[in-house]
């Protein structure tokens, strides 16, 4: 049964990729402009560019994005669970969260660069700053929304505060956490692109902007494909994690 589900899912993925490529092909043929190369030449360029240096940009960007996601998760997960369950902390933190949440944090890049330099750390800090809130808020709300009856039942079994976190809160927020991570990974790549276009010599953002400035549109699209691939890999990893961490959702 699992086998069949897997085949079905792979087929669906293949179909959506085919659909995307077909749309791209049609649009490129209709526009007939060098600014939008057709998919096949773009992919040929992508394959040629990989050994020529694209792989290095890809790895650097992957490293920055993945580390940022892990870092913001490590910070947001405990904070979100505690804020969702302990009302007195949330009363203190909520105004702060709502004040900072809507501020476009990419404007802090110059400040971060002054503080942390123009290398990896300022970029990772920026991405972490942005997606921290995108992960924190859903986890907090999921923790807050746990059915009081479940909590009381587990309490009646003799559970202390720690047992409640271990047996109830943590598994209850897992599905929300993974959903939040999916949304956040998209944001993370967008912020990564921005941060890599400013005073940067490496990473997919730099590669893309560099190609753009040289009117090398095929290379630019090779960069776009690489970015899409990065997002796709993260998405697949999250899918895999969900199957491992939330098996009760797949029965």
């Amino acid at each position: 049964m699992h086998e069949r589900g897997y085949i079905k899912k792979t087929a669906a993925t293949a179909a959506s990729i085919a659909f995307l490529l077909l749309g791209w092909e049609l649009l490129a043929v209709m526009l007939a402009s060098p600014a939008l190369p057709r998919p096949l030449p773009a992919f040929i360029t992508f394959v040629r560019e990989i050994p020529a240096g694209l792989w290095r940009h890809f790895l650097i960007s992957s490293y920055r994005v993945v580390l940022s996601i892990l870092l913001s998760l490590a910070l947001a997960l405990p904070c979100g669970m505690v804020l969702g369950r302990e009302e007195r902390f949330d009363r203190l933190a909520a105004p702060l969260v709502y004040l900072v949440y809507p501020v476009p944090k990419i404007v802090f890049l110059p400040v971060l660069m002054v503080l942390l330099g123009i290398g990896d750390i300022s970029k990772i800090a920026l991405i972490t700053l942005v997606i921290f809130f995108q992960i924190l808020v859903p986890i907090r709300d999921a923790a807050r929304g746990i059915n009081a009856g479940v909590i009381n039942s587990v309490k009646s079994l003799g559970a202390g505060r720690w047992d409640i976190y271990k047996h109830v809160v943590w598994p209850a927020v897992l599905p929300e956490m993974l959903t939040a991570l999916r949304v956040a990974s998209g944001t993370a790549i967008a912020v990564l692109f921005f941060s890599e276009t400013i005073v940067s010599q490496e990473g997919l953002g730099y590669y893309l902007l560099d190609a753009w400035s040289r009117y090398a549109y095929r290379e630019m699209f090779a960069g776009i494909i690489a970015m899409g691939l990065l997002g796709f890999i993260i998405y697949m990893a999250l899918d895999y994690l969900e199957r491992r961490l939330c098996p009760w959702k797949f029965v």
Binding site: N147, G149, V150, N152, S153, V154, S156, L157, H167, V168, P171, A172, L174, C246, W248
Partner: peptide, 14 residues
């Protein structure tokens, strides 16, 4: 003392 609540209080993830 054991308490059984109306909605059984079972954990969906266990």
């Amino acid at each position: 003392t054991a308490l059984i609540l109306q909605d059984y209080g079972l954990l969906p993830w266990k």
